[in-house]
Design a protein around this nucleic acid. Sequence first.
DNA 1: CGCTGCGCTTGACATTTGTCAAGTGCTTTC
DNA 2: GAAAGCACTTGACAAATGTCAAGCGCAGCG
Lengths: 192, 192
Amino acid sequence: MFDVFEAYLRAKITLTDEELALIRAVAVVKHLRKWQYLAQAGDRWQSNCFVCPGCLRLYRVDDKGQEHILTFAVENSWIGDRQSLLSGGPAQSNVDALEDSTVLLFKDQDFQQLCHRIPAFQDLINTILARSFNATQNRIHAAISYSAEEKYQDFLRTSPHLVNRVPLAMIASYLGITAETLSRIRKQLAQK
Amino acid sequence: MFDVFEAYLRAKITLTDEELALIRAVAVVKHLRKWQYLAQAGDRWQSNCFVCPGCLRLYRVDDKGQEHILTFAVENSWIGDRQSLLSGGPAQSNVDALEDSTVLLFKDQDFQQLCHRIPAFQDLINTILARSFNATQNRIHAAISYSAEEKYQDFLRTSPHLVNRVPLAMIASYLGITAETLSRIRKQLAQK
DNA sequence: CGCTGCGCTTGACATTTGTCAAGTGCTTTC
DNA sequence: GAAAGCACTTGACAAATGTCAAGCGCAGCG
C-alpha cells in the first residue's frame, strides 16, 4: 500500500531514493474494516493519517447524542484530530471507516523529523495545510450563508465524488441539516 | 509600531538580534482609518498581515448583497485571504477596519524568505496556522451543530473580547443569524 | 436646541427547517 | 422464501428563525 502514497508524493514533489526510503521506513500500514474506529474521542491522537483506498469520516457527538460530521476523507487525502495532535490532549472527535479502508500512519515525532530532513516534504505539508485551511474557510462561509438547499448544491459542486458514495443521512449530518430535509431537497431538485 | 510585533515574537520564540533585524527590514507599517479597506474582493492578496492595535474583519458578500463575516482579527493576530495568497488568484473576500488600526504587512515573498532563513519563525508560523485551523474546525462544528442561542453562547465563551467591541449586527453576521434573532436571544439570556 | 442617522429592540407574521411517526423498497439472513 | 433491518421517503404538525415595518434612545452636527 505504500506505493499509493509514493505515487501521490511523486506527483507533487521530487524526492531522491534515499528520501523516499526515509519516509517508507516510518510509515505504518493499517487496514480498517467498515465501521472500525481509527480513534475515538478521549484517545490521544499521535499520528498523521493518510488514506490510501477507502473512505473515513471525522465526527463529534454532542450532548444530545447527535453525530456531526466535520470531514470526510477518501483516498489520497489526510485526516486526523489536529487539535489533539497539537495540544497533546484527548481528542474531541471520532474517526471511523465508512468502507473497508487502508491507511498509512506516521507517528507525529517521525513526521516532524521527515519535515525537518526533507524540505520538499515540509513544503508539501504546508501546502496541504494551507489548502485544507481554505477548504475549511469555504465551508464556514457555506454554513453561515446558505439555506439548506444552497448548502446541498454547494456540496454537489465541491464534493461530487462523495454524493453517491456516502449515505444521505451522513451528508445531511455534514451539512448540518436533518436527513428528512435533505431527502425533500433532493426530491425537489429532481423535479426541476 | 514594530515594537508591538517584536514583543509578540519575543513572547513566543527566541530570536537573535540579526534575525530580528531581518524581520524588521521587510515589515511595512500601514495605518487604517475606520471603515478603510485593506483589500477588496477581486484584488490580489500578496501579503501577510499582522494587526498591531485595532480590529479588522474579513467578510464575503453573497449574490443578494448580504455580508457574511468569516473572521475578526484584533491586536496580535493575523488576517488575510489565504486563498488568494496561495492561488495567486483574485480574493473572494474583503478586509476592512472596524476601528482605526495599525497593521504590519509582509510581502509574501519576503515572508517565505524569513521562514526559510529563520527556523524558529517557520515553526511559529506553522503553529499559528495549525491553531487557526483548529479554531476554524471548531467554528464549523458550532455552525452545523448548534442552535442560534447555542452559537451565541459559544461565541461568548470563545470570543469574550469581541462581545462589547463589535456591533451586534456584525456578531450576528459572524454567527450566521439575523440581527433581530440575536437581539432577542440577548434579551432572553438577560432575563434568566 | 432640535435634527438626523445609527444601532438596537420589538411586534406581527411568513417561511424554513425540525420532529415524530409511519410507510416503502431493497438487501441480508436464517 | 419469510422475516428483519436498513436507507430513504412522505405527511402532518411544531418549533426556530427570518422578514418587514415601526419605534426608541443616543451621539454627532448644524
